[in-house]
């Protein structure tokens, strides 16, 4: 394994009395793509939301690029996140959605930020829509803008929280293609998804979670062909 990009150690989280994440251990190497799957309520989204601290956790450690950053804005600039509901800013153009954090958080000047933004929009193949507002775009286009917006901060790793779950079927592919390109370019990724085709094609490892625990971690081939755990097998039978 190369250098570890994200290291999750003995992570525990509770919502009141409810134990959502139980002793999670997971290391993601630089350049590695990990897909997390599992039934709803298993804690997948909560886990990746702990990585950029949109969720607080009570016990354990998460290190990003070798350190546990306590300055949250700084941490979040290192780890981009893409949401299920896109969450673009409706009052700003596509271009301004992308430049906002560069000009405000990184204090980059407008021209330089726009240049970066256009480069990233190019990368997700939507540069020609730069001056439109999010609501003028389709869901697939909006999600690609959201990916570009995250890439603008030059993150060391990307978190995807069910990025295609809110999309119409015919738009899923355009988003997955962009994500596959990113993987190809060596972006470190943790992706919560139910797209098993994508997992098979892109993931280095697949993590199966159930009831707040990591049940099984395996490369896609053995994960699909020869799941070790009964719960994994039951889950795969249900979705495949």
């Amino acid at each position: 394994m190369d250098q570890t990009a994200i290291s999750i150690n003995k992570l525990n989280k509770w919502y009141g009395d409810f134990h959502v994440l139980k002793d999670i251990d997971l290391q993601v190497a630089t350049g590695e793509q990990v897909v997390i799957c599992g039934p709803s309520g298993s804690g997948k989204s909560t886990l990746i939301r702990c990585v950029n601290r949109l969720e607080a956790y009570q016990d354990g450690h998460i290190e990003v690029m070798g350190q546990e950053e306590t300055n949250l804005p700084r941490l979040r600039r290192q780890v981009g996140m893409v949401f299920q509901q896109f969450n673009l800013f409706p009052h700003l153009t596509v271009l301004r959605n992308c430049t906002l954090a560069m000009t405000r958080a990184l204090r980059m000047d407008q021209a330089e930020a726009e240049e970066t933004a256009l480069r990233m929009l190019e990368r997700v193949r939507i540069r020609e829509q730069a001056l439109k507002f999010p609501t003028q775009l389709s869901g697939g286009q909006q999600q690609r803008v959201a990916i570009a917006r995250a890439l603008c901060m030059s993150p060391k790793a990307m978190l995807f929280d069910e990025p295609t779950s809110a999309l119409d079927p015919e738009m899923i592919k355009e988003v997955l293609d962009v994500m596959a390109d990113l993987a190809q370019d060596g972006m470190t990724m943790i992706c919560v998804t139910h797209e098993m085709g994508f997992a098979r094609q892109v993931a280095d490892r697949i993590v199966f979670m159930d009831a707040g625990q990591v049940v099984e971690v395996a490369p896609p081939d053995s994960f699909f062909a020869n799941p070790q755990n009964l719960r994994t097998r039951t889950f795969l039978e249900q979705i495949l």
Partner: peptide
């Protein structure tokens, strides 16, 4: 306002005030 708006802003590295 949709909570996702705040989360998206925080996730790209803005402070709560920003």
């Amino acid at each position: 306002l949709d909570r996702g708006q705040v989360e998206a802003g925080l996730a790209i590295g803005l402070t709560r005030w920003q």
